[in-house]
Design a protein around this nucleic acid. Sequence first.
DNA 1: AGGTTAATCAAACGTTCGTTTTATAATTTT
DNA 2: AAAATTATAAAACGAACGTTTGATTAACCT
Lengths: 204, 204
Amino acid sequence: MPRKPANQTVQREDILLAAAQIFQERGYEGATMAHIARKVKLTAGSLYHHFPAGKPDLLLAVLNAGLDAVMTQFDQVQAATINPTEQLRQMITAHVVSVTHNVSVGAAMVFEIRTLFALGEHEAHLEARDAFLRRRDEFEQRYRDVIQQGIACGEFRSVDVNIFTKALLGAHNWISVWYHSSGRLSGHEIAERMVDTFLASLRC
Amino acid sequence: MPRKPANQTVQREDILLAAAQIFQERGYEGATMAHIARKVKLTAGSLYHHFPAGKPDLLLAVLNAGLDAVMTQFDQVQAATINPTEQLRQMITAHVVSVTHNVSVGAAMVFEIRTLFALGEHEAHLEARDAFLRRRDEFEQRYRDVIQQGIACGEFRSVDVNIFTKALLGAHNWISVWYHSSGRLSGHEIAERMVDTFLASLRC
DNA sequence: AGGTTAATCAAACGTTCGTTTTATAATTTT
DNA sequence: AAAATTATAAAACGAACGTTTGATTAACCT
């Protein structure tokens, strides 16, 4: 019954990025395995060879890839210990550039967190889900820490650290909604303006 | 075959708010008519009596309700013409209080815009969709206008108006993700801190 | 009181989806 | 070259979904 030349070249990461794009266009629930398969020129069933645990596993892989990307850069920033102002500048830049560098993955981290909670009805991916959420909290905590340090050492004025951090994160997350690579500004240029906006707000 | 006491009291707005809550929990595609019906104690088919055009119509009704709520308050702010600083303060307050006052509807306006575009494959709700998107652009334009005016008259420092507005909108939109009515701060208190954050950033 | 309209339910319909199974082709190993 | 492994397609499956239809009850209006 079946055959076909077979490219034999589709890799796990290709599928992952295709999934991220389809998730961005249609949302996790609106995305079908056939949509994703089509983008890498496979059939829906063939995806199970690369992701045996199916669609939920595909989502977790996308989310973890996004968090890995930005966390790796954060580690580099904090390795070179500097003053809070410079540290926050570099964290914002790393974060914004990361989002604009792969918008689909960034969008998944904004729009599909809710999906992760709705997933909790099936008792299988719970461990992977909780591990992701813990790392995500840690990510947010790093922003809070550097802002708190800046206030403590007098570089920043006194602000509500929690709300300020939420405002900062919301501004960055929203970028994945409106950014297009063909737009007026590059990722770096957007990052500069975000740094300008939030460092100005923290000025004593 | 069928019967049932019949409450005879379910109103269009009850269904609309129930839909918003289900959309928030599961996303538009993850929400089923049965989920929504259950929340107002009806069956899925009965929803078509109140919303003949079905699920897409339900989404558009939710989104328009959200935009109506905030636009009404914006009109009041601009009726009393004052200086840009005070005008922006009142716009931010109106916006944030509106989001925290009905989080589900606010969340829909953040998370289901994408759904609106994916809807475009069926040529029926296109007009209602485009009308909504136009009003939404108008909403964003009001923020840009007041910031531009503030810069022009020297009350605000010179910033990239587009990016600053996107940052502001992102911060506000993100509130519908993390806000809970049982949290540390009320909607008004969060609004005060957002005003503080962004007006400080615009200070000359 | 009688007739009309509005609101609801139960059931059925056709479609689509995630997943599983089985067969086949390509690649790698021996 | 033969055998084993990997990657893929095709087909089938059962479940779930949005929507339609027809019957039934409640409310309203002469």
